[in-house]
């Protein structure tokens, strides 16, 4: 079966559902079948949000442990939490900017050592690309465009059957007009960052 399974994990409010939607729309443009599912707990904000995107053959819209071709983390501890979705051939792309849970912020819980943990994961997957996507998003004009930075990195890896230009077209047509320029810039910065890391 020719199918690409992309898992996106984030903290509520980071825009991963929009990111999944952009991949979905790009797939429709390319004539590739796409199935997605999005899951979040009861939290309006601050909870874990998971999106699964499956491109190509097949009909299911779920990704089991060990099945992700690409894991995209909008927040590093969430990427680590979801690492079990990866196998030895997976690629991981993650933002390194932490968003500590409020229990950590209040000193009741401990945030993990991100760098050391990502180093371990890097040895177990085919490729791990980690960079401060939030900083690049701010450079593009808004912290909210961090999702587009990571989409840029994803497009650059060549792990998905969608050309960067398709993404640009969808970003132009489907994201909010006021943010299109920022989003496009963020996307390109993400591509650049992935290039450097590859």
């Amino acid at each position: 079966m020719n199918v690409t399974k992309i898992m996106i994990v984030a903290v509520g409010g980071q825009g991963n559902i929009l990111a999944a939607r952009v991949i979905g729309e790009a797939a429709v443009e390319a004539g590739i079948d796409v199935r997605m599912s999005e899951f979040h707990g009861m939290a309006q904000r601050g909870g874990v949000v998971e999106s699964m995107v499956l491109l190509g053959d097949g009909i299911s819209s779920a990704i089991s442990d060990g099945e992700a071709d690409v894991l995209v983390g909008f927040e590093p501890s969430e990427a680590i939490r979801a690492a079990i979705k990866c196998n030895s051939r997976s690629w991981v792309i993650t933002n390194t900017r932490p968003v500590p849970p409020f229990t950590v912020a209040l000193g009741q819980d401990e945030y993990p050592d991100i760098q050391a943990t990502l180093d371990k994961i890097a040895q177990r997957v085919e490729k791990l690309i980690a960079f401060d996507a939030t900083e690049l998003a701010l450079k593009a004009g808004s912290a909210m465009s961090m999702n587009m930075v990571l989409l840029g990195a994803l497009a650059r890896t060549g792990k998905i059957p969608l050309e960067p230009d398709l993404f640009r077209k969808v970003i132009r047509e489907k994201t909010k007009k006021a943010f299109v320029e920022t989003n496009l810039k963020a996307f390109d910065l993400g591509m650049e960052a992935a290039s450097k890391a590859m």
């Binding site: 990866c86 849970p101 401990e110 371990k120 177990r124």
Partner: peptide, 14 residues
């Protein structure tokens, strides 16, 4: 799946 047994526990986001 890759071995995650020695990765640190990630705090929950209740």
């Amino acid at each position: 799946p890759i071995d995650v047994s020695d990765l640190p526990e990630i705090p929950q986001r209740p």
